[in-house]
Design a protein around this nucleic acid. Structure first.
Length: 626
RNA sequence: GGACCCGUGGUGUAGCGGCCCAACAUGCCAGCCUGUCACGCUGGAGAUCGCCGGUUCGAAUCCGGUCGGGUCCGCCA
């Protein structure tokens, strides 16, 4: 089906001289042996055509009862998905019967002998129909059959090429590939850990790594300088189309670097990898645009903006304030939002001015679902006049100025949200993303990478009354914000939401692809004193720090170099490069939303002996905190 | 933890209170056919409608529960 770039290597074996994708007109006249699966059979009684398939392609073989009566009898017993072999002579097809749809369509194998290597049950779904809609439960149960389908083969191969290209770039750039353990120490922070009971230390457990974060930082202390790994990670959280309990990251870390060093390398790597894996797809912009978190939220309402289209958020405030600075638009929702320190912002949707009432209602519903109290709109008619339920409050003049500020042309629809800064940006950002896809503003063939960096260091944890690292507790602070790592009172044990710490920005960067967060990383806090200050602000006692990160804190006392890194989701990357929104489509053996492997029937109950050996007993269905 | 959607021969769907011991396509089995490539033609087999219970004279169809799958919210350093 797919010819690999490395097809120069001979794939001949005792069973075959060629693969099913190899034969060309130039092979006519030579003897050949082929082996593979029966893709389709067309039986004329005295003449039988069999499309023989392997992952390299399809070759037509012809069995003529007149020339090879024994082979003809064998071929008559062949059924789809039987594993079979043929021996014969490669021949040009009769003029007019060539098949342009096949790479091998100029030739056919004229069979002398046919062999059934292995019979096959009738498969539960069609392997040979590329358009078949198959229930995913079935596909997952019979994944080995699903993977035979051309679309899945293509994705497996794309993923293989992706990982290969990644390795090539890293090995060519001074990186050392290091494997880290999968049985490590549980750190009760962040996502829920998968736990593995220890037989040798009864009553104690390992955890599977959520990522090799601490280990790769320890490798920096070890002097590895540049590390990378295609690492399997595990998180015991509820699943989504883009989240599986185990997934794969490109994990890397570099020493003696600043933000730009890491971002520049990752950007060059992403470009080289993209060009190697999907040369036919255009990169929207190189170098990748870089937005600060504040700018991304202000302009796109998202920390993972899809920059394939504009439709940016526009601040309407300047038009809404009178000469005295007071908000007096006449529309109470707007005025109250501004008076309360909130915002009034808009996006302009091209061509939706004539949208029926039901469409506006849908958008309003969506806005409410996203957390807004409502959604205001203005339609710019073909004549240029502004229509909409709120025009009567604003007056024609103000309505026109708002539409003009929003950049609306005749035929456009202006959607307006008035709320707190956070809600306004978030709601408009989600509407923008949804409409961008719906209206086809985002070119599916384009790859739009972008950076978002300078995230807030902490966010206020209302429930626990403390500061919480927004990303990784080891992210470093930008140098000029170092002085902000403090509380208003000066005592880290007494945090308040108004502390200077809330304004500190992290040396944290996310790489975004077509509106998906592809990966994130940071330059770490490698200095002892700053690390302790940061942990103290997050309310960690010395004892807790010691218990959770003891090895790392100790290691940092033995000479930790300045270092930083990033992790990229390989599954998401492969999905985006394959036009898929669901990472299950680019994983060989994924699990369902409830974490089951339908093929292996996992998870399953351990037997009594396993329990006994581990000193465990099942005490009943657990209660789960929400 | 919550909301919504789906579950009918092997597969994909239709049927949504009686016309249905369930229809169509494809697959499967048998027969015929020497140039097809989603081959064609003829015939045949195959589902008590995920499971349990209820409503009703009557349930694939309505209701409740349950199991399985999916989408989303919460969750995801």
């Amino acid at each position: 089906m797919i010819e690999t770039p490395s097809s120069a290597a001979s794939l001949a074996t005792p069973y075959r001289t060629h693969t099913c994708g190899a034969l060309r007109a130039s092979d006519a006249g030579s003897p050949a042996r082929l082996a593979g699966w029966v893709h389709r059979r067309r039986d004329y009684g005295k003449l039988t055509f069999i499309d023989l398939r392997d992952r390299h392609g399809i070759t037509q073989v012809v069995v003529d009862a007149g020339d090879a009566p024994e082979a003809s009898e064998v071929a008559a017993r062949m059924r789809p998905e039987f594993v079979v072999a043929f021996e014969g002579e490669v021949a040009l097809r009769q003029p007019g019967t060539e098949n342009a749809k096949l790479e091998t369509g100029a030739v056919e194998l004229q069979v002398r002998t046919a062999t059934i290597l292995n019979e096959a049950k009738t498969p539960p779904f069609y392997i040979n129909d590329p358009d078949a809609q198959i229930d995913e439960t079935l596909r997952l149960k019979y994944r080995y059959l699903d993977l035979r389908r051309e679309a899945m083969q293509r994705r497996l191969l794309l993923r293989s090429r992706l990982v290969h290209a990644i390795r090539e770039v890293h090995h060519g750039s001074g990186f050392v590939e290091v494997e880290t353990p999968n049985l490590i120490k549980s750190t009760p922070e962040g996502a829920r850990d998968f736990i593995v009971p220890s037989r040798l230390q009864p009553g104690e457990v390992y955890a599977l790594p959520q990522s090799p974060q601490q280990l790769k930082q320890l490798l920096m202390v070890a002097g590895v300088d540049r590390y990378f790994q295609i690492a399997r990670c595990f998180r015991d959280e509820d699943l989504r189309g883009d989240r599986q309990p185990e997934f794969t990251q490109l994990d890397l870390e570099m020493s003696f670097v600043d933000e730009a060093t890491v971002m520049d390398f990752v950007e060059r790597m992403a470009i080289e990898v993209s060009r190697a894996v999907v040369p036919e797809r255009a990169l929207l912009a190189t170098p990748f645009p870089r937005f600060t978190y504040a700018e991304a939220m202000e302009r796109f309402g998202s920390d993972k903006p899809d920059v394939r289209f504009a439709m940016e958020l526009v601040d309407l405030e300047p038009e809404l304030r009178g000469t005295d600075g007071a908000a007096a638009s006449g529309f109470r929702v707007f005025d109250e939002a501004l008076a309360g320190g909130g915002r009034v912002k808009a996006i302009t949707v091209p061509g939706l001015a004539d949208a029926p009432r039901s469409r506006i209602d849908e958008l309003t519903e969506a806005a409410k679902r996203f957390g807004a109290r409502g959604l205001a709109h203005l339609s710019v008619e073909a004549s240029g006049s502004i229509k909409g339920p709120i025009v009567k409050f604003l007056g024609d003049d103000l309505a026109e100025r708002l539409a003009a500020r929003a950049g609306a042309a005749p035929g456009d629809l202006v959607l307006i949200v008035a709320d707190t800064t956070a809600v306004t940006n978030d709601v408009l950002g989600r509407l923008r993303a949804e409409l961008g896809t719906q209206l086809g503003l985002a070119d599916p063939d384009v790859l739009a990478y972008a950076w978002v960096h300078r995230f807030p260091m902490y966010q206020w944890d209302v429930e626990n009354g403390r500061w919480d690292a927004t990303h990784n507790p080891f992210s470093g602070v930008v140098p000029e914000d170092e002085v902000l790592l403090t509380t208003a009172s000066g005592d880290p044990a007494l945090p308040t939401p108004d502390d200077p710490a809330g304004r500190a920005r992290a040396m944290q960067y996310d790489i975004v692809l077509n509106g998906w967060e592809l990966g994130g990383g940071s330059v770490r806090i490698w200095r002892h004193d700053l690390l302790e200050r940061s942990f103290a602000l997050q309310g960690y006692t010395r004892e807790r720090m010691q218990n959770m990160f003891g090895a790392m804190l100790e290691a940092f006392e033995y000479g930790a170099p300045p270092h930083g890194g990033i992790a990229l989701g390989i599954d998401r990357w492969a999905a985006l490069l394959s036009y898929q929104v669901n990472i299950r489509e680019v994983m060989a053996f994924p699990k369902t939303q409830s974490g089951s492997d339908l093929m292996l029937d996992a998870p399953s109950e351990p037997d009594a002996a396993q329990y006994a050996e581990l000193g465990l007993r099942f005490v009943g269905v657990p209660t789960r905190p929400s």
